[in-house]
Design a protein around this nucleic acid. Structure first.
Length: 194
DNA sequence: CCCTGATTCGC
DNA sequence: GCGAATCAGG
């Protein structure tokens, strides 16, 4: 496969959009993510903001000769587009936070109710979910992938929070058990009215 | 183990 | 210029 103008264009566009190298490679086809990354570097558009990765400090090569002309940080101004989240500053000084919430008192002894409104869900689904919880890998946010169950477990307000992490159903965000909880068939919750 | 980008270096 | 192998890390 060669880097035709069109392919390079797609590469640039997707890279600018924040797509990962593997995603771009998948889209282009015929190339690996390594090829994409290599090309990205050769094109001089490496650092993309908010990539989530760390730049490799690495050791400076003792080689004195100018071997790599560092790309002069192009002005890739056109970012945006994909930032609907206004980033609420969590830095709320002191002061205030008056009658914000009734403050969920967290009595250590009293387990909080499960996050989903587990009430009108088929007993079978609940049973499966319970079992899944026992086997949950208890992974962190960073460890979530398209193939891990993203069902939250525990209390986000405490350290005892993690994600199920079991093998997710292809195309689904959750494992089998949690998919059953998340996607209740209409027939199942119908007639239960409220 | 899944994934991410970065770098190196023979081709 | 290209990209697999490898590295470094989440």
């Amino acid at each position: 496969m060669t880097w035709t103008d069109e392919r390079v264009e797609t590469l640039k566009r997707m890279w600018a959009e924040g797509q990962s190298a593997s995603q771009i490679a998948k889209e282009l086809g015929g190339v690996t993510r390594n090829a994409v990354i290599g090309k990205v570097h050769r094109l001089g558009l490496s650092n993309r903001n908010a990539a989530g990765e760390t730049a490799k400090p690495k050791e400076e090569q003792p080689d004195t000769s100018a071997r790599q002309a560092e790309a002069p940080a192009k002005a890739e101004a056109s970012e945006a587009a994909a930032s609907p989240a206004p980033e609420k500053a969590a830095a709320e000084p002191a002061a205030a936070a008056p009658a914000a919430q009734p403050a969920r008192k967290h009595v250590p002894g009293q387990p909080l109710p499960p996050q989903p409104s587990a009430n009108e869900i088929s007993p079978e689904a609940l049973a499966k979910a319970s079992e899944a919880e026992k086997l949950a890998r208890r992974i962190s946010l960073m460890e979530l992938t398209e193939r891990t169950c993203k069902w939250p477990l525990g209390d986000p307000a405490t350290d005892d929070f993690y994600f199920c992490g079991l093998a997710a159903l292809p195309g689904k965000p959750y494992c089998e058990a949690h998919t059953a909880l998340a996607y209740q068939p209409m027939s199942a919750r119908r007639d239960r009215k409220r």
